[in-house]
Design a protein around this nucleic acid. Structure first.
Lengths: 160, 160
DNA sequence: GTCGCTGCAAAGTCTTTGCAGAGAG
DNA sequence: CTCTCTGCAAAGACTTTGCAGCGAC
């Protein structure tokens, strides 16, 4: 699981991520373990926004031999979040969901019927946010935006 | 605590809110209790965004004779949230904060140093959000936006 | 070898629920 | 009077922590 021999664009991207992670660990005198790699890999390969529990299930499924504990998942997510390699999202429901932070900045639109999360980017919105922040005398560090609605799919479902 | 005899603008507004609440309770065959009124009142009189626990403390402080339980606070907040009279905000930290939903729509800018929450409204942002939602084929129900940064106050503190 | 990491289980938080008595309508 | 509410305490859900053995470096 450690080394890829084919170099599609995706694996190149993943390898960069992985080496960043290793770098990060080294700098802080931390160790690179199979569990940590698997967690990163799962986050990378999932298009979903995962809860710690969902992530744990996924790992149990794909790598049952590791017997990874939920505590390790939490610990690694904290580590990754502190290092800004993943971002946590907290919506109305309880619990957080995590996504890889390496992706470009984007916002989220959440379907209140099926719970799916779609990402989008809008430059006009970004610009406007910067302006507002300045007007209010803040120094902006980050921002997040969520729109809640009903997605095309669920609208169609209802019509049937 | 039940009846105000002066009619400043603020109490008029509060009385409207209160009668809406009573209306809501009546429609659903629920009862109007002192505890429920106090919770609404505290939410109305607080400019803060309150956690259930903070709200509970506040109530204990202002109306210790009621001995209001935390469970009642949670139950009432759920009730109010279901009825869309209050809105819950969940940020990165754990736990939710609540605010009265009767206020006009607005977004939040949160100081990552002192934790204070400032509200703002921006029409351009609102418009843009509507457009995006349409483009993505969603029917918009709601949205929320948070900007994280350092407020003027905390910037000044740091300089000293 | 050393010292951080891991799984497990126990301990914490925060929130919800069951129950019997209190109280609104 | 009836049926909902309430406070209390117990139970739940989700996270964090302590510890002894394991494993990366």
């Amino acid at each position: 699981m450690n080394t890829y021999t084919d170099f599609t664009e995706r694996t190149v991207e993943y390898n960069k991520l992985l080496s960043d992670f290793k770098q990060l660990l080294k700098i802080n005198g931390l160790k690179f373990t199979i569990q940590r790699e698997v967690i990163l890999e799962m986050l990378y390969n999932s298009d979903e926004h995962l809860t710690p529990e969902a992530l744990h299930h996924l790992i149990q499924e794909k790598h049952p031999e590791l017997g990874t504990g939920i505590a390790t998942v939490y610990r690694t997510l904290s580590l990754l979040e502190d290092s800004e390699m993943v971002t946590s999202l907290s919506f109305g429901a309880q619990g957080k969901k995590y996504e890889l932070g390496a992706k470009d900045h984007h916002d989220h639109i959440i379907c209140t019927t099926c719970g799916s999360i779609t990402e989008f980017v809008d430059e006009a919105l970004e610009q406007r946010q910067k302006m507002i922040t300045q007007e209010l005398g803040f120094v902006m560090q980050d921002h997040s935006m969520q729109i809640y609605g009903v997605c095309k799919n669920c609208q169609d479902q209802t019509k049937k």
